[in-house]
Amino acid sequence: MKTYTETLYDAYGQEFRVDKLYFENKTEHQHLVIFENAKFGRVMALDGIIQTTQADEFIYHEMLSHVPLLAHGKVKHVLIVGGGDGGMLREVCKHKAVEHITQVEIDDQVIEMCKQYLPEHSAGAYDDPRVNIVIDDGAHFVNTTDLRFDVIISDSTDPIGPGGALFTSDFYADCKKCLNPGGILVTQNGVAYMQLDEVVTTNKRLQSHYKDHTFYSAAVPTYIGGIMTFAWGSDDEKARSLPLETIKHRYNAAKIKTRYYNPAIHLASFALPQYILEAIENQTWTD
């Protein structure tokens, strides 16, 4: 029986049965595989780390898109940094009021490969006329563009490796510059229990650029180790604590179908466990 063992951590890990191998690409710089697993459907892994699976990706993509979009309420322009698998684009495209979506992906081959092997992630979103794909380094793009956005979503890989530039203070500052007044930045920020220092570091880096900065969370089964945190930065201090009725109204008006997200989850996801609050407050972490 063939298995794929994630090697993200030394002392702990998850293992998948490989029911069918769809794609493997090994270069000097990376090793990418896409295979079928009975429990999670199509699984994509890069350099020993699970990136996305067909079965649980909806949790991640819905939470990193609908929370900022519905909290903002009047989003016209969206920037997605990374997100080559197309799942984020699919969710943003569900919002008919959004007029323009820019996606900056560093590697065009990732998009093509995911269209072919993970077609349900993008589900045709790349053909949406509102979408503009830019092949560029996300950090470079936000540093140089004159475009302005209402929501920026950073859908990056882990901070180790090429994604590292998307976790820097400079990146958060450049995103701030690219946001319209009242705009919101959200970023994937890892699994807090396993990487608590990333929460502390990101919080420190956000606080000098955004009047309101916090995290919200969701548990994604194949990002193992408990809840994943999403960083939140905005100058609109009320955006994350709107009345439930307001969110409900916007959600119903948008007429989007979701499987994880709903207005109650939206508000509840900003409640953080005590260990995270204390780490942020004390600016320390322990293992």
Partner: peptide, 17 residues
Amino acid sequence: INQQPSDKNAANTVAFI
């Protein structure tokens, strides 16, 4: 000399761990 023949399937698979 005296090498065990390779598993034919192994040639096309991921580094299964």
